[in-house]
């Protein structure tokens, strides 16, 4: 079985080398002109509001920063980001807005004024969140100025006229941070068994689970048995 394992691992590596087209041809360059979906989830009231509050690209900078992005709530944006950033596996299925906020905050992804579920996402919020999701916040010249985050995204060709366009430029995090191993949940729908095949990261560090160690009763029953001097 180990040979099979070695074969699989080596084949996968070779496959990734031989078939770069398969993975890298799928690369999508940021295309500002490309019209994408607004977002995966829309609030019931959002559709009508969209029509009355469109984003105008020529508005002045301050107005731009506070302009709502197609009336999408922060809860909806958080749920979308949790998926795209590869954090969904760390939280329960059908997560609440606060569960999404928690795992995003743990990864330093938070609007300037914090996450508020019903608050409509502004361009300034979206720009900050997208930059943080790309882990490029250190490259923003003036982090205290909302316009600086928007300008930075412009400078690298990332459009933020719609949530969909912006999120399409976000990759799963290379170093995701989540309390996924020692998540102390008592909820039977969310609790985790300490059953990891190998080290899993807890907030970036490895927390090896205690392997199955025999109990005294199993030991007495012979599982922890001495081997015969002459083996079979």
């Amino acid at each position: 079985m180990k040979r099979v394992g070695l074969f699989v691992v080596t084949s996968v590596l070779l496959g990734a080398w031989i078939l770069p087209g398969a993975s890298f041809a799928a690369e999508k360059k940021a295309e500002p002109a490309k019209v994408k979906k607004e977002t995966a989830v829309k609030a019931p009231e959002a559709k009508t509001a969209e029509k009355t509050a469109p984003v105008t690209a020529k508005a002045d900078a301050e107005k731009k920063a506070t302009t709502p992005v197609k009336q999408v709530s922060q809860a909806e944006l958080a749920q979308l980001l949790v998926n795209v950033l590869g954090l969904a596996r760390f939280i329960p299925a059908s997560p609440s807005a606060e569960q999404c906020f928690g795992v995003l905050m743990a990864n330093s992804i938070v609007p300037a004024e914090g996450w508020v579920a019903d608050k409509v996402v502004t361009k300034a919020d979206l720009a900050r969140i997208i930059v943080q999701s790309m882990k490029r916040q250190s490259e923003v010249k003036n982090p205290d100025d909302p316009k600086s985050w928007i300008d930075y995204l412009k400078s690298i060709g990332v459009p933020i006229d719609t949530i969909g366009q912006a999120v399409d430029n976000v990759n799963p995090l290379a170093e995701p941070v989540a309390p996924n191993v020692v998540t102390s949940s008592s909820d039977p729908m969310a609790k985790r068994h300490k059953f990891n095949t190998i080290d899993e990261t807890q907030y970036g560090v490895d927390m090896l689970s205690v392997a199955r160690v025999f109990s005294q009763l199993e030991l007495d029953a012979g599982e922890f048995r001495p081997l015969p001097i002459t083996q079979d």
Partner: peptide
């Protein structure tokens, strides 16, 4: 060695990829 070769072959990317390899 394989990973080094793979890295050299990878073009610079700006947009998001549906595939990721770590």
């Amino acid at each position: 060695l394989l990973l080094g070769m793979l890295q050299v072959s990878a073009p610079a990317k700006e947009g998001a990829l549906p595939f990721q390899f770590n």
